[in-house]
Design a protein around this nucleic acid. Structure first.
Length: 724
RNA sequence: GCGCCCUUAGCUCAGUUGGUAGAGCAACUCAUUUACACUGAGAAGGUCGGGGGUUCAAGUCCCUCAGGGCGCACCA
């Protein structure tokens, strides 16, 4: 019997342990790859997906922290020079929406506020949350290098982002132009395709008399100024009309001169095969208008209200105006019939689920096909490994049908677009009178440009970048592209681990922008975890009231138990249910491990010397080392769920239930050789098991290690050598 | 429309290149000052969604049907 620390006489207490252990790691400096010893040569890098600094961490964050920390701890023990670079995301639109809700509660609104004032307020809010979030990452055991932490609004990040925009502009891959954008009338900004979602709805489909034509529409409220009627060039029903023919028709607010347009975009079999177009509020109509040089007249303002063109309906919200307009159409005898069973999909803002109102606006776009092409080629050559592998196909499918990306947002919370526009007034500088008209209207530049020819000023674009434009450059921007030591040493990184949900938003953009800017793909492995759901498989959401906070769980059951619950049963890409019974099971496991250690420390005074194993013990050792190899192999191949389960099963039902139970008789017995062999076996299995288990349950394994007789000076378990 | 995935024990899910089904939880029967009740022992539970094919051998590969989920794009 040996004396053991008193704490082993009580059940394992995470709350008395975790803070102390984290401090021990952090003070050792070993999260920083530069502080790791000689053994750690080959770099292994993970760039953390920066959590949004606008709230608490949720279960999804806990998953990424657990998986990434697991990989990093495993690689660190194997002897890699590991860098896990943490960050925080200003999360442009997301944060602005969160902040707007806060303003709303306070009875305030962002509209009418001074943009600079608003920006400052959101910055304070974000920085406060950022600090809070960092504390939570620590509680979850993150062994990331805090000395290299980055924020998406750091000046060096912005500089890199501007550099990329400038390069895209110089290469002709950026353009500014009038195009139909997804406009959210509530949030007063345009959105990318990814930021909208479609819902199917049943909407009345109206057939309206438009002169000799009958046209179909679901949106009579946009039709006031419709002066083009479009039919397919091969439609025999309308063969007697020629492209460009004009005729006067009686319309909603009186007679209107209509022009006939023939365009192949019209489906002959849909409706009557004839439609009028509203180019200002429909992408397809806009494209038709562009092809034929037609007028584009706005009908709806940015708040979703009808413009003066609508005469008596002006100022009304489109949703309210529709019924009244239909009433008027009916009264005028223009309504032919209504199909009440028509189903179509409409786009909605992914945040407020309000209907998107297409608007034609001047916006910045990035040409995506040229950026996607080289990435597609690399993926086809298997230069990236996807876990789960079906995401390779999903990614290729998306990249092959990619569309240009609207990167300008009409919100203040973000990185301002470095574009400058020439003032309207233009008085030539003395002596440059003959250069009138040569002034460059738009300049992309970091600094305020000066006009060569006149005294006019350049004003900066008031829009900001889509957050994902800057996040898409995160791996090389955080490492100090292009010249820093870190960039040269740690780029390209090894693994990108993130939520499957943001594969297009983020992963695809990082691949494209990373390859474009640095010539190399930013990572060689993509691991995508699924959504964490409640026990019944329902998505966690505040409105359902089934959200469970990872920090509360970690306080109640211990971080290690939470981590195990998040790893085991969590295969890449699939949803994982997280619930208290499951976490509790691993809390019990932590205690089991605690008592295994207590038994061994108490009953088997460690001699510090290797002993010869009996034939029986050698067999047991062989079984363990085989398992250890299997676990290493599982971890190398990202099968964390399997490795975790195997360790759990072995330690509890083999080591504790069988080996330790039978050891009781051996240790009480008289056979010295058998006893020495068994003492050596128990110590060896436990010390190696703690190492194997450390990436999964870092706190308790480190705590036990610190009390163990085989501890190597002050070296934490965190950098002990991985068992071979 | 285009694409991806799922269906295995009551529940949640594993099952890596085809070798004859596993874990956790729940439920059942015992044990009860044990390193640990945050426990142990034991037993029970599945024709692997249906059908067909390839094979000596299929939960695993191919085809097909049914049910479910997801992504992308859509005609006013």
């Amino acid at each position: 019997m040996a004396d053991i620390p008193e704490k082993f006489l009580k059940p394992y207490s995470p709350s008395e342990t975790e803070g102390r252990i984290y401090k021990l790691w952090e003070e050792s400096g070993l999260f920083n790859p530069d502080k790791l010893g000689e053994r750690h040569k080959e770099p292994f890098t993970i760039i953390m997906p920066p959590p949004n600094a606008n709230g608490s961490l949720h279960a999804g964050h806990a998953v990424f922290v657990t998986i990434e920390d697991l990989i990093i701890r495993f690689k660190r023990m194997q002897g890699h020079k590991t860098l896990w670079l943490p960050g925080a995301d200003h999360a442009g639109f997301e944060t602005q929406v969160v902040y707007e809700k806060k303003l709303e509660k306070e009875g305030r609104s962002r509209f009418g506020m001074d943009p600079e004032e608003l920006r400052k307020e959101i910055m304070d809010f974000t920085l406060h949350n950022k600090q809070f979030m960092e504390g939570q990452l620590r509680e979850l055991g993150s062994s990331c290098d805090w000395s290299r932490e980055k924020f998406t609004l750091d000046s060096d990040i912005i500089k890199t982002v501007y550099g990329t925009f400038q390069k895209l502009y110089n290469d002709g891959l950026v353009y500014r132009g009038k195009r139909t954008v997804n406009w959210c009338p509530k949030h007063q900004t345009s959105l990318s395709e990814l930021e909208t979602e479609s819902t199917e709805e049943q909407t009345p489909f109206y057939y309206l008399k438009y002169g000799p034509f009958t046209i179909g529409t679901v949106r009579p409220e946009t039709k006031f100024a419709d002066k083009y009627v479009v039919v397919h060039p091969n439609d025999r029903r309308y063969a007697k009309y020629k492209h460009g023919d004009k005729l006067t028709v009686e319309w909603i607010n009186g007679p209107i001169e209509a022009t006939i347009i023939k365009d192949e975009a019209v489906e002959k079999d849909f409706g009557t095969g004839a439609m009028t177009i509203t180019p200002a509020h429909s992408q397809i109509d806009f494209e038709i208008a562009k092809r034929h040089g037609l007028d584009v007249e706005p009908i709806i303002d940015l708040r979703g209200k009808l413009l003066p063109l609508a005469e008596e309906f002006a100022g009304q919200k489109i949703t309210e105006a529709r019924a009244k307009i239909v009433e008027k159409l009916t009264a005028k005898g223009l309504l032919v019939k209504t199909d009440e069973n028509y189903k179509h999909t409409i786009k909605r803002c992914y945040k407020c689920l309000g209907a998107i109102e297409p608007q034609v606006r001047d916006q910045w776009f990035i040409k995506m096909p040229p950026l996607a092409k080289p990435v597609i080629e690399k993926i086809e050559k298997d230069e990236i490994v996807f876990y789960p592998e079906q995401y390779q196909k999903i990614m290729l499918h998306w990249l092959r049908s990619i569309e240009d990306w609207n990167v300008s947002r009409q919100i203040v919370w973000g990185i301002p677009i470095p574009a400058w526009y020439h003032e309207k007034k233009c008085i030539p500088k003395p002596g440059r009178e003959e250069d009138v008209g040569k002034c460059i209207e738009t300049i992309v530049s970091l600094d305020q440009p000066e006009c060569e020819f006149c005294n006019a000023k350049y004003e900066q674009d008031s829009d900001t970048f889509d957050t994902w434009f800057s996040s898409g450059q995160w791996p090389f921007a955080t490492l100090g592209f292009p010249d820093s030591k870190d960039f040269k040493e740690f780029y390209p990184t090894q693994v990108m681990e993130t939520a499957g949900e943001i594969i297009f938003f983020w992963v695809a953009r990082m691949l494209m922008l990373g390859l474009y800017r640095t010539g190399k793909l930013p990572f060689s492995t993509v691991y995508l975890h699924g959504i964490v759901t409640a026990k019944d498989g329902q998505k966690m959401s505040k409105s359902k009231g089934n959200v469970i906070s990872p920090l509360e769980l970690s306080e109640k059951y211990g971080t290690d138990a939470l981590r195990m619950a998040l790893i085991i049963g969590n295969t890449p890409g699939t949803t994982t249910a997280l619930y208290e019974e499951k976490i509790n099971a691993y809390k019990k496991f932590a205690n089991k491990l605690w008592n295994i250690s207590r038994f061994i420390f108490e009953m088997t005074p460690h001699t510090g010397k290797d002993s010869e194993l009996t034939k029986e013990d050698a067999e047991k050792w062989k079984i363990f080392t085989d398992l250890s190899k299997e676990i290493t192999d599982d971890l190398e191949n990202y099968r964390f769920y399997l490795a975790g389960e195997k360790l759990y099963h072995y330690l509890w039902h083999e080591f504790a239930d069988k080996i330790i139970e039978e050891s009781k008789d051996i240790l009480k017995g008289e056979n010295t050789l058998e006893k020495q062999s068994r003492v050596f076996l128990l110590n060896s299995v436990l010390s190696s098991s703690l190492k194997l288990l450390h990436p999964f349950m870092p706190f308790i394994t480190e705590e036990i290690w610190q009390s163990s007789p085989w501890k190597n000076g002050s070296t934490p378990l965190m950098i002990e050598t991985w068992p071979h």
